[in-house]
């Protein structure tokens, strides 16, 4: 059961999007999220949608996989859409007791739902086409100017890498401990909340103990391999911007400008 959790949902394929520099992808994603929030009418949202679909198509990741990433947030989409439909005043279409559905409300809830879907899809494109390592690398480099503010960005990237490396190991270990306790008669599934929390303790404590033990041993191993922070460190894999990255930026910027113009120039509804 625990094994099904996937960390970093990289979907291997050969596509332009996969081949792009992760830094460029990361920055574009951030930029696009901002643009999504600036798109306030049909024209602008339509442009966002077209761009989004084009990127999905280029990524060569099956639509099915994208739909799966949307599944967990369906309740959130419905919830926000319903709230919006109910709370916006305007031309009443349907009324029952104190519940009013207005035309503006419906439109607005449609926009909101669409916007959330776009947000999820565009972040999925990044995580499906970029390995966790590439992503940490990109983040380390994108935020490297923060070093000047005496924030050690390298440390955060290192922590992320180690977390990614050890999460599967710790999940495996949790399963082992759970099975060991179950075979000794521990009951983890029934009983009151308090009883169940108490039943978890014999799992959490050994797990915590082992995690600390691992941390100390890993620290020793890292020190023996000459780790001394980010200073003077080189990397095996260099990130390089290639023609495709410049082309992507060349397309991306005008699209963003177009969306913002459409949003500003055409009235909201």
């Amino acid at each position: 059961m625990l094994k099904d959790i996937t960390i970093g949902q990289y979907y291997p394929a050969f596509s332009v999007i996969h081949a792009m520099d992760p830094r460029v992808k990361f920055l574009m994603m951030i930029g696009f999220i901002v643009v999504i929030f600036l798109a306030w009418n049909i024209a602008a949202l339509g442009l966002v949608l077209v761009f989004c679909l084009a990127v999905l198509f280029l990524s060569r990741v099956p639509v099915k996989v994208y739909l799966k990433s949307l599944k967990p947030i369906i309740p959130i989409i419905i919830f926000t859409a319903v709230l919006n439909a109910l709370y916006i005043d305007g031309e009443v279409l349907w009324k029952w007791w104190i519940i009013e559905i207005t035309k503006e409300g419906l439109l607005r809830s449609g926009y909101v739902a669409l916007r959330i879907i776009m947000l999820i899809l565009i972040t999925s494109v990044l995580t499906y086409t970029t390995t966790p390592t590439q992503l940490t690398d990109a983040i380390e480099r994108v935020f490297s100017p923060l070093n000047r503010l005496k924030i050690d960005v390298h440390v955060f990237a290192m922590i992320m890498t180690i977390a990614l490396r050890f999460i599967p190991t710790l999940i495996e270990e949790t399963e082992k401990i759970m099975n060991a306790q179950k075979s000794r008669g521990a009951d983890l599934e029934t009983g009151s909340l308090l009883q169940r929390v108490r039943a978890l303790l014999p799992i959490l404590i050994p797990l915590l103990f082992s995690a600390f033990h691992r941390a100390f041993e890993l620290a020793d191993a890292m020190e023996c391999r000459c780790y001394h922070g980010g200073k003077g460190r080189t990397r095996l894999k260099q990130l390089k911007c290639a023609g495709r990255d410049y082309a992507a930026i060349g397309i991306f910027l005008p699209v963003c400008a177009g969306i913002i113009c459409a949003s500003v120039l055409i009235p909201i509804f």
Binding site: T161, A221, T234
Partner: peptide
């Protein structure tokens, strides 16, 4: 140095990146 527990001395999420860890720390050319 090679230690007893295999898991607790591998740092990176990909084999070749882990092997590169030492030389990276030493500032060796890519």
């Amino acid at each position: 140095m090679v230690f007893q527990t295999p898991d607790n001395q591998i740092v990176a999420t990909i084999v070749e990146e882990d092997v590169a860890f030492g030389p990276e720390n030493l500032g060796v050319e890519p």
